[in-house]
Nucleic acid binder design. Structure first.
Length: 504
RNA sequence: GUCUUGUUAGCUCAGCUGGUAGAGCACGUCACUUUUAAUGAUGUGGCCGAUGGUUCGAAUCCAUCACAGGACACCA
């Protein structure tokens, strides 16, 4: 039984005693009239006064007990609500006869949620506090909190029981508040630009828009499998065909692949599509977007990330091939032919899968020698067409696409391009992907003829971009695991958690 | 998927080359009306992640498994 721990038993016993004495251990009769933050602000003037107190003011605040110091007939209690922590001073003689000794001291403890009323005063040590004249238990916590000084540090507990992490670690609350603000600001930024927020299906008949393995689920009524979406791209572009000129979606994608510090099976991205624009316009709006975020989050443009310092005012732009030599240090003549690249990679003790085409090999060089060196925000442009099945070819060089990826702190943050809107070209790109799939590339993009048909009705020239929100939040909060920016990261089930039998 | 480290009280952690389990916090009892991780006294608390093995004897050595962290691989 989950309550057989003796500390829990002890606390359940206290809850019973309270109930028997006429105090509901789960009362919902809250009369709170201010938050702790407001209380501290409104009464900060008391510190300057002669008396250090104002008995004519009266406030009711609520919160969870984080510290409890009982000293005979008086006690100091630190309570915390979402806005902050407040010290309250509880004395025997300011409470009803017997309450302090038989109820408060015996049955109320760290972890419980209480409500106190009283007047503001400043203690001898100069801390603005609340002098209590009424005290109500709102919620009895029957499980004890972790240790008050070290808190919970065990990552497994922190992720599996995020509520405990949030109770104990104020910085964690801050991180998720930042995450929320980033999403909210992102929404506002694009709305202000005239973009329309839309929702497209999470369950797809064909998992398209990216190269990734999907999760499969089953629709009973139709008797067919569906794929959890790996990207919303093809649906958003159908909307551009339909006549919407600027759309965005902030939502989850699901990819059935490995989990590590930068990958969670479900993750959040924003994708936006903008008709009558090109990837050049996207570079500009991306810079603007970052500026907007930093301004409204009140962050300095120079941010630490681990050992790195990232200058968010220093956006660079460089074509992929050029970056291989200037940043990656790859000799120029080892970048432009399959043989040259393979020879160079082999000389660095890197083996590549046989059958890779030139574009894939150039991508390999980039991943190997350039990516991790891109600290300040850098737009890498002019991606080879072979690794960009949904991007528009450059008008001047059909081997490359009008595409960029944005790298910050050695990590990909965004992917964008002028969209391919030629249905014939799109069809042949899909066919190329199908060939790759037949040759064993199980990551190759699926054929989506319905999407090709949509393009055949004409999609205005459009530019589109995806930004990984989780990784962006990691950058802004200096977190190095995606689990630290997800409230409930994916975890393997514990042995004692029952799970359905595997069936075929 | 591979390698590697970890798993001991509610939490944070000790525990040597194998000899039968420790601290701090928390909790119980007592004292204490201005404390700041309050303090002082005292006490309770453990299937040492699971299963096997070696041994007279295993928290400790070995094997397998589970979960977690890190690195690598894969995947944008």
């Amino acid at each position: 039984m989950i309550f057989d721990n003796k500390f829990i038993q002890q606390r359940i016993e206290k809850a019973k005693l309270l109930e028997e004495a006429g105090y509901n251990p789960y009362s919902n009769d809250s009369k709170r009239n201010t938050s702790i933050e407001k209380y501290l602000n409104v009464n900060s003037d008391i510190v300057e006064t002669e008396e250090k107190r104002d008995e004519n003011r009266h406030y009711i605040v609520s919160g969870r007990i984080k510290f409890l110091r009982v000293m005979g007939k008086a006690s100091f209690v630190k309570i915390e609500d979402e806005s902050g922590m407040l010290q309250v001073y509880v004395t025997r003689d300011n409470l009803p006869e017997g309450f302090y000794n038989t109820i408060f001291k015996k049955n109320i403890e760290v972890g419980d949620i209480i409500e106190v009323g009283g007047f503001p005063f400043v203690t001898g040590k100069g801390e603005l506090s609340l002098h209590v004249d009424t005290l109500t238990l709102l919620t009895k916590a029957i499980s004890p909190l972790p240790e008050k000084f070290h808190g919970v540090t065990d990552k497994e507990i922190r992720y599996r029981k995020r509520y405990l992490d949030l109770i104990m670690n104020a910085e964690v609350r801050k991180t998720f508040q930042t995450r929320s603000k980033v999403i909210s600001l992102t929404r506002r930024f694009f709305e202000d630009k005239g973009f329309l927020e839309v929702e497209t299906p999470m369950m797809h008949p064909i998992a398209g828009g990216a190269n990734a393995k999907p999760f499969v689920t089953h629709h009973n009524a139709l008797g067919i499998d569906r794929f959890l979406r790996i990207a919303p791209e093809l649906y958003l572009k159908r909307l551009i065909v339909g006549g919407f000129e600027a759309v965005f979606e902030i939502n989850r994608n699901f990819r059935n692949e490995g989990m590590d510090a930068t990958h969670n099976p479900e993750f959040t991205s924003i994708e936006f599509y903008w008709a009558y624009k090109t990837y050049k316009d996207l570079i500009e709006i991306t810079k603007e977007y970052f500026q907007y975020l930093f301004e409204h989050l009140d962050l300095p443009t120079m941010l630490p990330y681990g050992d790195m310092k990232v200058d968010f005012a220093n956006f660079q732009e460089i074509p992929l091939i050029e970056s291989l030599t200037t940043i990656g240090g790859v000799p120029a003549d080892s970048c432009t032919s399959k043989e040259g690249i393979i020879a160079y990679l082999n000389s660095k003790n890197i083996t590549v899968k046989p059958g890779m085409n030139l574009g894939q090999l150039q991508g390999e060089l980039f991943d190997e020698f350039v990516e991790e060196k891109l600290i300040d925000p850098t737009f890498i442009t002019e991606y080879p067409v072979e690794i960009s099945p949904l991007a528009r070819r450059s008008d001047t060089n059909p081997e490359i696409t009008e595409r960029f990826e944005l790298f910050i702190a050695g990590r990909e943050i965004a992917n964008a391009f002028s969209e391919l809107n030629d249905p014939i070209d799109q069809l042949s790109r899909f066919e190329g992907q199908m060939e790759a799939k037949d040759c064993g590339d199980d990551e190759a993009h699926e054929m989506d003829s319905d999407f090709v048909e949509a393009l055949s009705y004409g999609m205005a020239p459009t530019a589109g971009q995806g930004i990984g929100i989780d990784r962006l939040v990691m950058l802004l909060t200096n977190e190095h695991s995606i689990r630290d920016v997800l409230l409930f990261p994916a975890m393997k089930p514990l042995a004692n958690e029952c799970q359905p039998e595997e069936e075929n």
